[in-house]
Amino acid sequence: MNDTEILERIGNTKEKILNEIHKIIVGQDRVIEEILIALLSGGHILIVGVPGLAKTLIVKTLARVLSLSFSRIQFTPDLMPSDITGTEILEETASGERYFRFVKGPIFANIILADEINRTPPKTQSALLEAMQEYKVTVAGKDYDLPRPFFVLATQNPIEHEGTYPLPEAQKDRFMFQVNIYYPTENEEVKIVETTTIGYEPEVSSVLTREEILKLMDVVRRMPVAPKLIEEVVQFVNLTRPSENSSVPKFIKEWVSWGASPRASQYLILGAKARALLEGRPVPSWDDVRSVALPVLRHRLILNFAAEAEGVTSDMVVEKLLNLV
């Protein structure tokens, strides 16, 4: 199948994916779309939301619809790096010869849900973040490649911080998106209660295979982007960085300590390309960039005390900046 045929079919495929997921998940269209965009871009996601909003169920259902292996890791204070990556065990043959055999950890799956990543010490967090970056784990000096696609969704609880180990800003920057999940509407909650208290779980069908997903990821990487759009994205990201440059808005200088890194520019372009592909378009536009700007930038802006004192959030800063361009 060539790229043109893929573009013709992808719009219908997106609808099929949403229809299958909505057999189990009520609402959350924005969250599902952002997860699909990050997956096709080869990025990872940091999910922030209070308990009980179906974060695990969304990811598990998506894995079933996309024919991908799924693994959930519950991060706790006593979790060790080897509990994630795997370890070597000593075995003995019938002849008495001893050897080490590597037993793979739960990280060897296509989709990883790292539940409450901020509840485990930095050493264990680093083991996961290194695997996210390198797509492999190293045990006893030997490298083991992770399955592709490899997609990590790490969750954080925004209301409980006692006994946690917050991710440093440099490690947050490795996540393509920060996706915020909010409470459902009243009508959605009524439907949730109706469908989850009757003892019936609908069957979902697979829409894509692993090979087709890898093909779509390759199409995203090869999708052309207008040089002007790249320049506009870089200029936009530069506006998040407080400096003496006269083009930087006054509110950025007042509220922001540190702006977004060049990685933000890369992810804005990749996210725009993936969104264009899901819409069946051959090239991304500025509207695609606007659609992914919030999840790309909200965890990359470090606000100062003045912003906190005024109740200003990073979402408010990004939206205000988008209104200027």
Results as ranks from 00 to 15, higher is better:
Met1His: 12
Asn2Pro: 10
Asp3Ile: 14
Asn12Thr: 15
Lys14Gln: 14
Lys14Pro: 08
Lys16Met: 15
Lys23Cys: 15
Ile24Ser: 13
Val26Ala: 13
Gly27Ile: 14
Val31Tyr: 07
Ile35Arg: 08
Leu36Tyr: 10
Leu39Phe: 08
Leu40Ser: 13
Gly43Pro: 12
Thr56Cys: 05
Val59Thr: 12
Val59Glu: 07
Leu68Gly: 10
Phe70Gln: 09
Arg72Thr: 08
Ile73Met: 07
Pro77Cys: 09
Met80Glu: 05
Ile84Arg: 04
Thr85Trp: 00
Thr87Arg: 03
Ile89Pro: 03
Leu90Met: 12
Glu91Asp: 04
Ala94Ser: 13
Lys104Gln: 14
Ala114Met: 04
Thr124Gln: 03
Leu129Thr: 01
Leu146Phe: 02
Pro149Cys: 11
Phe151Asn: 01
Phe151Ile: 08
Leu153Lys: 00
Thr155Cys: 06
Gln156Lys: 04
Thr164Lys: 08
Thr164Asp: 05
Leu167Asn: 05
Phe177Pro: 09
Phe177Trp: 03
Glu186Trp: 04
Glu186Asn: 07
Glu188Pro: 05
Thr197Ser: 15
Gly199Met: 09
Val204Phe: 01
Glu211Pro: 01
Lys215Asp: 05
Lys215Thr: 13
Lys215Ala: 12
Asp218Ser: 14
Val220Tyr: 00
Arg222Phe: 00
Met223Lys: 02
Glu231Asn: 07
Ser243Arg: 01
Glu244Cys: 00
Ile252Asp: 04
Lys253Ile: 03
Lys253Trp: 00
Glu254Asn: 01
Ser257Trp: 02
Gln266Asn: 06
Tyr267Glu: 08
Leu268Arg: 03
Gly271Pro: 05
Gly271Thr: 09
Arg275Pro: 06
Leu278Trp: 05
Gly280Met: 12
Gly280Pro: 08
Arg281Ser: 12
Val283Ala: 12
Ser285Leu: 11
Val292Tyr: 02
Arg298Asp: 04
Phe305Lys: 13
Val317Ser: 09
Glu319Pro: 01
Asn323Lys: 15
Asn323Glu: 15
